[in-house]
Design a protein around this nucleic acid. Structure first.
Lengths: 150, 150
DNA sequence: CTAATTATCTACTAATTTTATAGACAATAA
DNA sequence: TTATTGTCTATAAAATTAGTAGATAATTAG
């Protein structure tokens, strides 16, 4: 499940990725443009900054910007930074494995088996989609850039 | 995310799928063998019964059994019955679509775009894996049936 | 230096969801 | 008729999510 935190974070990072090179955006602006509670976004952007995806600057004219090219930021990294492991269940996680307390034998557990497949399927998407991919798709779908307008 | 409810439900239905043809199992037994709180499992099996996957019989000698062959029950159906839609976010759900309140334009939303892909990836696994598949995998991984024992 | 601006940090609260539990009721078999 | 087993309603504890309040720190402009 993607919580509001993850959703807001993805929207915000796409917003930042669409800025001109060198430009920054302030939290208040990103929040307003994307209908995100400002205080909540404060905490979210801080997480993404601490994860190395954003850089920030205080004071007048300050704000946030990507710390690296949008094509170098995977959607999976954003989600993991904000929501933790992507596996549907801890025993199927690669980065944060933990056995269930109720589980007799992890090797024969049918739930773990299918949930590991699900984990891999999710990773196959989020770790092969970058923030730049999202920007390009958004642009491609905006009315003025639709196919029939070419 | 798979909650305990979904995990317990999957374990229980696999348990029932491993019974002899015509045999039933009582909730108390399924609960004990799988380390599931009995009262919680009561509610779970009821959900699966109401979804048409299980049949039940009251009284002495009663219990639960599959309502159809294990190969006709998809993991996705079990999860949906117990946890609702599989999409990570409502706007990416096919069965229970709902727009986000904060979303300006659903057609260009980058979050919805990638989460739709994730939804399809998850469905690709859970809707192509049956309860019988889980049973077969469990059996194949049990020590006495391991490859080296052939 | 001062004042305005903007990010950072800590602490807290409210709402929602998950994870159950209690106990009465209904059906069935011996 | 009694013991057994599923069914149903109501409730509560625990955990997670979603936010808010308010002080602090850094930077810029004047």
């Amino acid at each position: 499940m993607l919580t509001n935190k993850g959703k807001y974070g993805l929207k915000a990072i796409v917003h930042l990725a669409r800025l001109e090179a060198g430009e920054t955006a302030q939290v208040a602006n990103v929040a307003q443009r994307n209908n995100i509670p400002k205080k909540f976004l404060d905490a979210i952007l801080l997480d993404l900054r601490n994860a190395g995806m954003l850089r920030s600057k205080k004071g007048p004219g300050g704000g946030y910007a990507l710390a690296k090219p949008a094509r170098a930021i995977k959607v999976g990294a954003v989600i993991r930074a904000l929501e933790g492991p992507i596996a549907p269940i801890a025993c199927a996680s690669r980065s944060a494995f933990r056995a269930c307390e109720d589980c007799g034998d992890i090797d024969t557990c049918p739930v773990r088996s299918v949930m590991s497949d699900v984990r891999d399927a999710i990773a196959g998407i989020v770790d092969n989609t970058t923030v730049d991919d999202l920007v390009q798709r958004s642009i491609a779908r905006e009315p003025l850039h639709a196919d029939y307008a070419i």
